[in-house]
Design a protein around this nucleic acid. Structure first.
Ligand SMILES: NC(=O)c1ccc[n+]([C@@H]2O[C@H](COP(=O)([O-])OP(=O)(O)OC[C@H]3O[C@@H](n4cnc5c(N)ncnc54)[C@H](O)[C@@H]3O)[C@@H](O)[C@H]2O)c1
Ligand SMILES: NC(=O)c1ccc[n+]([C@@H]2O[C@H](COP(=O)([O-])OP(=O)(O)OC[C@H]3O[C@@H](n4cnc5c(N)ncnc54)[C@H](O)[C@@H]3O)[C@@H](O)[C@H]2O)c1
Lengths: 210, 210
DNA sequence: AATAAGTCGTGAGCAATTTCACAATATTAT
DNA sequence: ATAATATTGTGAAATTGCTCACGACTTATT
């Protein structure tokens, strides 16, 4: 369908955010070199990334911020709003609910679910918390879920999400969940990230020349 | 120094965790195929990853769980404790403080810092919160920091961390911070992760055959 | 007008990572 | 013992991603 490399696709939201910043600062043009310094991605990589979408810049000039931003807005479907459900209103889930993803974003946490009766019926950062038993009923139309429940619950809830018709899951539990092939799962494993950082520090010490 | 590919190094903590689980379940042996199903990494990749450390398995048999676990414990320095400081005790920072990284881990959040007088002096999940003004004084010996402050504060605090002698930063702010080449920064950008997932769902729809 | 400086878009090469596929070896069953 | 089955470790190929380096073109300057 799309021939954009995955590595490029992952960087698009980052480019979009920084272009947005530049636009708010009133900047009219930007070079791949400037952008490179801001997002910490090699300037040749940026030019290559952009080139997959055609010739967006002008030689000797750079890129027009407003034009580029508009282009990425369309490409990233920033005009359509995507609804997301959050499952598990604990420490991590509550932090996400307080955070307004909408600020720079086309993504909205529309509802949350928990098993704890004390949380059910409340609103956290404008988002209503429903009982997990009502998930299938309330969640119609929502195709993306953020999973912030205990690892032991992950498989059970995942199966229910799959049956409900989910297409994407952002999984913060340490469990590696099993889903049918047509469902996309992105894992964010904070403990692994921290351990990996520490491992790199000990085994790949950087010198002054990178 | 080490010739382990970076992609392999990033998976080590994951392998370690699942081997730990297997060991607790009393499992004595495991094949790359079984492990593959658990961690969702191709079995050939797992064998290749392990092979960088030598011949850890036995042909026709698989891997001895206890032996492998012991090997990775040493490799990942699970016997040494690494102290970490957390900067910014807000929504996200508080969630991390409540989470006990030590459970399966050799990493400990030893102290936290915030600018808010109401938080200073308290303890969250056993971790003392100090005033950010006292950072340099209190932080001696700590070489890794988790950054969960507002993006606008990121550059200023980063400079102070660099001067203080930090070697690694796990950055949760959307800011792309600038550090000298010998300091390692890992970015975890939750808004980007969510946007990227949504982008993939719309532009790379998966079929039943993956 | 002519020159200098700046910057894109991309061919080509390089580097990193993943995957295939199979000989070698171990275990299990009969 | 022997045969059948299981599974590793790895050479080689395939895939994916990154970076150099430069021609082409734009803008600014004199
Ligand atoms: N907090 C962190 O810093 C952190 C770090 C790394 C990983 N994680 C992982 O993220 C997940 C959430 O962590 P947390 O600290 O927020 O945990 P938590 O215990 O604070 O929150 C879990 C929430 O899920 C709810 N819950 C339990 N079973 C449920 C069910 N069947 N259906 C719906 N809701 C249910 C609980 O009521 C609770 O509110 C865990 O898997 C944890 O391992 C958290
Ligand atoms: N909460 C989320 O779900 C979420 C999601 C994506 C990204 N983020 C990013 O993570 C960071 C933290 O988010 P949050 O929701 O926890 O924000 P928050 O506002 O709840 O917390 C920030 C904390 O930092 C403290 N602080 C401010 N200035 C400081 C300084 N100079 N020194 C020390 N402490 C200082 C504040 O007192 C506050 O406690 C932000 O950069 C945010 O963009 C958060």
């Amino acid at each position: 369908m799309s021939k954009i490399p995955q590595a490029t696709a992952k960087r698009l939201p980052l480019y979009y955010r920084f272009l947005n910043n530049l636009n708010h600062q009133g900047k009219k043009r930007v070079s791949s070199k400037e952008l490179s310094e801001a997002v910490k991605v090699d300037s040749a990589t940026i030019r290559r990334d952009f080139s997959y979408f055609g010739a967006l810049g002008k030689k000797g000039y750079g890129y027009n911020v407003e034009y580029l931003l508009g282009f990425f807005r369309k490409t990233l479907d920033q005009d359509e709003l995507t609804d997301v459900a959050l499952i598990g209103v604990g420490n991590l889930g509550t932090a996400f609910l307080h955070y307004n993803f909408l600020k720079n974003n086309n993504i909205q946490i529309k509802m949350a679910f928990d098993a704890d009766e004390e949380k059910v019926g409340t609103k956290i950062g404008e988002v209503p918390v429903y009982h997990i038993n009502d998930m299938e009923e309330k969640m119609t139309g929502v195709k993306v879920a953020i999973l912030t429940i205990p690892a032991s619950e992950a498989d059970g809830i995942t199966n229910r999400l799959v049956d409900q018709g989910i297409t994407g899951i952002l999984n913060f539990t340490p469990a590696r969940i099993t889903v049918p092939g047509h469902i996309r799962v992105h894992h964010i494993d904070l403990a692994v990230e921290l351990q990996a950082l520490v491992y790199f520090l000990k085994h790949y010490p950087l010198t002054k020349e990178d």
